[in-house]
Simulated assay, not measured.
Amino acid sequence: MSVTGFLIEDKEKVKWEDVFLDKGSRKRLDQLIKEFRYLDELKKYHLPVNNKILLHGCSGCGKTLTAKAIATQLNKPFYILDLCNFISSRIGDTAKNIRMIFDKVNRENAILFLDEFDHIGKMRGNDDKDVGEMRRLVNTVIQLIDGFSEKALLIAATNHIQILDVALVRRFQLKIHFEMPSDEELKSYYTFLLEQFPERIRVVPECFGISFAEARDSIYTLIKARLIHELEKDIV
C-alpha cells in the first residue's frame, strides 16, 4: 500500500449544531473556527492562530464527529490517518512517510486528523528493538508539528492521553476533554435523535450510563425493529 493509501479523505458533512459538547469546549472550538475565518486580519497584528488540537477522553463520546464538524465549518479538505495501521505497516519507513503526509496537508491547507494518536506512546515501550525507531518517529512528529502551516489544521485524538510523550502533548494549543455524558445530556441527545422520526415510533426505552455512540446505536436498533414490525404487519 502506498503512503497515500493510508490517508483517507473523508467528505462527510457534519453540522456544528449536531455535535454535543459541554459549553466550555464548544466556546473554545467556536473561537478556533473564528480565528481561521479571520486569519488574515489576525496576521496583521502578528497574532498566531491556534491550529493544533488534541481531543482526548472516553471512546464513543464524539471526538471524530467533532473533527468532521470543524472541517465542515471551515470548508477544508479533511484527511484521516489511522496511526495504528500506518505505524505497524513498515516501522522503518514511518518517519519518512509521515513527513510526506504532513507535506501534502500543508500544501493543501487541509485538516489532518490523527486517529489513535496514543499508538505512538504505546509502541515505544512494546519491544526493545523498536524503541530507537519509535524515538526517532516521535522526534520527527514533534518537528512536523512545530513546522505545521498556520493555514492548515492538525487534530489528534486519543483515549489514553496519559501514555503520550509529554513533549508531544505540549505542542497542542487546545486540549479538549471528552467525558461520558450525564443523564441530562443523554436525555437531550435522545430527543435530538428521535425528533426525525414519526411520533408513533418515538416511544422507545432509553439507556443511561453509556456513550453517545452507544446511545445512538441503541436507539437506531430499536427504531428499526419497530419500523420492521410495522412493515411485517402490513404485509400480513
Rank of each mutant, 00 (worst) to 15 (best):
M1K: 15
M1Y: 09
M1N: 11
M1T: 14
T4Y: 15
G5Y: 08
F6D: 03
K11D: 06
E12A: 14
E12N: 13
V14D: 00
V19P: 04
F20K: 12
D22R: 09
S25I: 09
R28V: 15
R28A: 13
Q31E: 05
Q31M: 10
L32S: 01
I33K: 02
K34T: 02
E35Y: 00
Y38P: 00
Y38R: 14
E41H: 05
K44E: 13
Y45G: 01
H46C: 09
L47D: 00
V49Q: 03
K52L: 07
I53H: 00
L54I: 07
L55K: 05
H56K: 04
C58H: 10
C58A: 15
C61G: 01
C61Q: 03
K63A: 06
A67F: 10
A67K: 11
A67W: 09
K68T: 09
A69L: 12
I70D: 01
I70S: 06
Y79T: 07
Y79R: 11
D82S: 14
L83E: 02
L83N: 07
S89V: 12
A95Q: 04
N97E: 02
I98G: 01
I98L: 05
F102W: 05
V105Q: 06
V105G: 05
N106L: 04
N109V: 10
N109C: 09
I111P: 03
L112A: 03
L112P: 03
L112D: 01
D115I: 12
F117E: 01
D118P: 05
D118G: 04
D118K: 09
H119I: 15
K122M: 12
R124V: 10
G125K: 13
D127Q: 12
D128C: 08
E133P: 00
M134S: 09
L137I: 15
N139R: 09
N139P: 04
D146A: 07
F148T: 08
E150M: 11
K151T: 13
A152F: 03
A152L: 07
A152M: 06
L153K: 07
L154H: 02
A157W: 03
T158N: 01
I161P: 06
R171A: 06
H177T: 11
F178I: 11
E185M: 14
E185F: 07
Y189D: 03
T191C: 04
Q196D: 06
E199T: 10
R202V: 06
R202K: 13
V204N: 00
P205A: 04
C207P: 05
G209H: 10
E214T: 06
E214L: 11
R216K: 15
S218R: 14
T221K: 15
T221G: 01
L222I: 10
R226Q: 11
L227C: 08
H229Q: 11
L231H: 01
L231T: 02
E232K: 15
I235S: 00
